[in-house]
Amino acid sequence: MNITVTLIGQMAAFVLLIWFVNKVLWGPLNNLLAERQKRIADGLAAAEKGKRELELSEKRAREVLHEAKAQAAEIIAQSEKRASEIIEEAKADARNEGERLLAAARAEIEREANRAKEQLRAQVAALAVAGAERILKREIDDKAHAELLQDLVSQLR
């Protein structure tokens, strides 16, 4: 018949081949596929994580930008306020200075006026003395009153 002891040989070969295939083909490739599967899963998870982190950092960047803008606006407002303050101060200073100068000028004018008055007074005194001299010339003895007159002149000068 056709079925012979070859059957036994083929069975042994079959069992042996299963063992070999498991050892050199199925096992390594299956491990490899599992490893790759894990790798891909890890990669996808990492990508997902990265995406989330990106979103987070974008959000944070927006916040920081917003904050910076607010800060900048505040600084600008402050500096504008400060600038107007400085201008006001400068204006006030200028006004004070002007007033001071004005006051000084006025004092000067007054002083000049006083001096002029003094001079006028002196001259009036001289004129008065001169007038009085003319009036009194006849009655006043030059010799008797010379000393007195001299004193008067020196006082008027």
Binding site: N2, I3, T4, T6, L7, I8, Q10, M11, F14
Partner: peptide, 15 residues
């Protein structure tokens, strides 16, 4: 062709 031999096919199926 080994598979045209009943010994082979029966070896597989009997295993």
């Amino acid at each position: 062709v080994p598979t045209t031999d009943l010994s082979t096919t029966f070896a597989l199926s009997l295993t």
